[in-house]
């Protein structure tokens, strides 16, 4: 990750030639804002989703080997371990989708100054969506 010269908190005081400047990652909590975390989460969930899709297509294409093969794969994926992973997948989809809509708003020039508020709104909606998905799969997880 790129680093940049950055005066940490309390280091700007007297200023002048004596001012100390630290090199700190933009990911350091003193520098990173909500926007940086939104960007990071968007990228991480995006990479995870590409990986998933490149697996999802061959898995569904197991139907080419016959209905029995497809049903066997689906039965395996309907077990506790894979269903818990599915909730993680849905969390990534929901966050990536909602944050994508947030980016779309900004590209259209809308609500740019309220970007932090918009982030917390989509974050809350994501959490609610994941909670709903968790509730849906609860019978499989507790079975």
């Amino acid at each position: 990750m790129e680093t940049r010269a950055c005066a940490g908190p309390g280091e700007l005081g007297a200023g002048g030639a004596g001012a100390r400047v630290r090199r700190v990652s933009p990911l350091h909590p003193a520098n990173a804002g909500v926007g940086m975390y939104a960007f990071l989460l968007h990228r991480i969930t995006g990479l995870a989703l590409v990986f998933y899709v490149l697996l999802h297509i061959p898995v569904i294409s197991s139907a080419m080997l016959g209905a029995a093969s497809f049903d066997g794969v689906m039965a395996l994926l309907h077990t506790k371990f894979w269903v818990v992973l599915d909730v993680g997948l849905l969390a990534a989809v929901i966050f990536h989708g909602l944050n994508g809509l947030r980016l779309l708003l900004f590209d259209l020039g809308l609500l740019v100054k309220q970007q932090k508020l918009v982030f917390w709104i989509i974050f809350a909606l994501s959490a609610a969506g994941v909670a709903f998905c968790f509730w849906i799969v609860l019978p499989v997880i507790t079975a």
């Binding site: 209905a67 497809f70 689906m74 849905l90 989809v93 799969v137 499989v140």
Partner: peptide
């Protein structure tokens, strides 16, 4: 951006049909 907007709609329909319209139903070829 264009595919993103279309994906929000198509993916919602896909997920609704596969997993949410009849939750608990096992997915099988038939």
């Amino acid at each position: 951006r264009a595919t993103a907007a279309a994906l929000v709609v198509a993916l919602f329909l896909h997920l609704w049909a596969t997993h949410f319209s009849d939750p608990g139903a096992e997915i099988a070829f038939a």
